[in-house]
Design a protein around this nucleic acid. Structure first.
Lengths: 346, 346
DNA sequence: TGATATTATGAGAGCGCTCCCATACATTAG
DNA sequence: CTAATGTATGGGAGCGCTCTCATAATATCA
């Protein structure tokens, strides 16, 4: 059933080499020959055998996508599906395929190694690697092109695509301060994840720029989950923040729930903001002010960059931070009026 | 860097054939020879070249996972991540890899075709295909082994793994009736998805078995999303159901929101149940009674079954329905007391 | 003990493709 | 007009592996 180059060649009255040239868009083929070959190929439904092509060319046109699954919390929101969609669609456009590994610790050893070493893959996209991921070192040793989704904090030789978490967080907190909030707290992500660290950094920068004294009581570590946000909000409550910047929507939702349980009204008593703009953020009660990140484009860019690195291995690291968008909904009003009301009560 | 069979052979003082036998666990190799070859392979960090192996053996040990992306609604909940995790881990255990395609209509044509035809793949897992997916026909024509996640309603020659949606829905509705609810409504999934149809079927079966008259006003079609659930609940409200079986947790959450907006209390005024047991279901207000499905095991089973079909192509379709679990939380109480209270008021 | 089966190994032919090189012919330059 | 350059094609080696077949060595049986 699956026809070969040789067959096409015979039917078209040319050599295998010529057919190969046609299939690979080489320049030196006569117009007429090319047309004839193409029509035969079409007729016989020719599809090049990938394995043979890979073996001969030393390139598979397959990208590996590795998702370390220590962070199963991330599977709660649509981050990975969107990222995968972006990667997948960019690959398709560039005539590549995606191979997927959910890197549970045990498998990391066997199958992935095998695939990487076995030349099954031309490059790797490493999604949300932990800062000290051993896979990084393995990849570098192997000399395989790779790119991170999520920047690497220390190693400036590694390529990555990330969202500009610092700026985004800074803008959000600056926005809260501009609204008149004076005790802006934050629920951070886990310390060992760079996104969490960067968002905290942005929070601190905003405070500094606005000359607001920074208060350790108003910073509580969360874990990006709803439950974590709930607990963190409870810890925050005694310190009477008037606004809370949660480093993820999931945590913001948890905070909202804690507030409801504590009988606080949002945004009248306290403002809440999130990060991510997951679909559900538009339907919380009240709808959540948050930051939208271009997850899908980021995935696409990662794939495109990697493909580019594979074809032009100049060794230069590619590093990109993508911009975010502040989505204003209903979880924070102007605080000025409220403060007046509070004052007049006294 | 990447060593070859030939090298190992030279170092071990045997022929390429013998090394190949050792690497593939063929029986007829002397103990001592095997040990020697293995130690050399280990020392030189030998990894077989996948492309070469595939070309020669005509098998790639790669499974394709195709996810049709018309149903982007499904990307909202963690269904696919879990499914992928199950598939990926089963593949790893069986020394296979997973290639992923998000089948947006345009790509379906190009890359996937290429991969399937190009022999890049030994078999395909087709996740939540629509009933009339053209890919089905293409796969069959190509003679490539494949398996569906989600049963096929009409074609009994195709292999699939699914959850027993009918039984699960029937059990849930029977449970509601047993609790004393008398006007049990349902918010269904979209008609063209078999899971939706099956859950409706289960609902109807339960009514019939309990000899409850079936009322068309109490059946509203949703689309598996939160928003759809909200709208459907609003449509249901005038017909005064005392319990609602939503065919997905997302829709149940939407229904909950509609109820809150309408000033109804759950479960005092009305009971709500969902389907899926997404993580968030445990943290709705009140926590949602729902049905848990073994998504990850289902993915794993699909992969294992497919691998089995590839090695033993007997042509027999494999069909499995996996059991679900009723998770009782707080969105439906006993209705007996409530009815008494209502009656005494009159 | 000779015939037969079993086990251990090597030789070699591909799998279907890419890519380098050789060739043939057409074009241009000196 | 000869030499150099460019264009279109074919030939063939070889990518690293699997697998059949041949061969040699050893074990089994009447």
């Amino acid at each position: 059933m699956p026809s070969t180059l040789e067959e096409i060649a015979k039917h078209a009255g040319v050599s295998r080499s010529t057919v190969s040239r046609v299939m690979n868009d080489h320049p030196n083929v006569a117009q007429e020959t090319r047309a004839r070959v193409l029509s035969v190929a079409e007729r016989l439904k020719y599809q090049p055998n990938i394995a043979a092509r890979s073996l001969a060319a030393g390139r598979t046109r397959i990208l590996g996508l590795v998702i370390p699954m220590g962070v199963s919390a991330l599977f709660t929101d649509p981050y990975f599906p969107l990222l995968i969609q972006g990667i997948s669609s960019a690959c398709s456009s560039n005539d590549h395929s995606v191979m997927l590994w959910i890197a549970e610790p045990e498998y990391e050893r066997r199958t992935i190694r095998q695939a990487l070493q076995g030349g099954m893959i031309d490059g790797v996209i490493l999604a949300s690697a932990l800062m000290d991921d051993p896979m990084l070192e393995a990849l570098r040793k192997r000399g395989l092109p790779f790119i991170l989704v999520g920047r690497h904090p220390t190693d400036d030789q590694v390529s990555y695509v990330d969202v500009d978490n610092r700026s985004a967080a800074r803008d959000m907190v600056a926005y809260l301060i501009r609204l008149g909030y004076e005790r802006v707290a934050t629920i951070t992500g886990p310390k060992n994840m760079i996104a969490g660290a960067d968002r905290l950094h942005g929070y601190l920068t905003a405070l500094r720029e606005r000359r607001v004294a920074h208060n350790a009581d108003l910073i509580v570590e969360g874990d990006f989950t709803e439950e974590g946000g709930y607990v963190a909000m409870q810890q925050l409550l005694p310190f009477a923040p008037d606004a809370v910047f949660a480093a993820s929507d999931a945590m913001a939702v948890g905070a909202l729930r804690a507030l409801r349980d504590a009988g606080k009204r949002v945004p009248d008593d306290i403002a809440i903001t999130g990060f991510d703009d997951v679909p559900f953020a538009a339907r919380t009660d009240p709808p959540l002010t948050t930051i939208r990140q271009p997850i899908q484009p980021m995935g696409a860019l990662a794939a495109e960059t990697l493909i580019n690195m594979i074809s032009h291995p100049d060794g230069q690291p590619h590093r990109v931070l993508m911009p975010t968008e502040l989505i204003i909904r209903a979880t924070c009003g102007s605080n000025v009026r409220r403060r007046k009301a509070v004052n007049s009560k006294q």
